[in-house]
Amino acid sequence: MILRGKVWVLGDHINTDVIIPAKYKFRTGDFSELAKHVFEDLDPTLASKISKGDSIIAGRTFGMGSSREHAPRVIKEAGISAIVACSFARIFFRNSINVGLPVIEVRDVNKYFKEGDIAIVDLEKGIVKNETTGVELNFSPYPEFIMNIMKAGGLAAYRKGIR
């Protein structure tokens, strides 16, 4: 699985309230509607600027806070193909895998990207490359059972495939 896209660089501690404020999830369960509000409290214009296939580069503890699975689902719905961060919050990481959103931990990754650079992520080889600058960073690839979920596009799709 190789993903290529333009990057948005976000800071440390991007929490689930910033990803999708709780008030919206109590109004609707429609993800195309919710995706319009992704990262709204961080930058109200960001949702409209994200194009399909873009990636996020972020700092420490991305996704900290609530267990709401709305968070990775909304990010995926908004068109983001992968998140590469210095570290992730535990529940967000697990939820992202379940919904088939690639989340990759790479130390200091935010030092090597700026907004608009092109990132290439090779999930099997464990490489994140900044195509714009040529820098290559490594990570340890997912164990096989997670890779299979990722390839299927999430736990639900994976289950259907093996049934």
Binding site: I91, N98, V99, G154
Partner: peptide
């Protein structure tokens, strides 16, 4: 006791 997401 721990928190999980909706798919879990």
């Amino acid at each position: 006791a721990t928190g999980i997401g909706s798919t879990d």
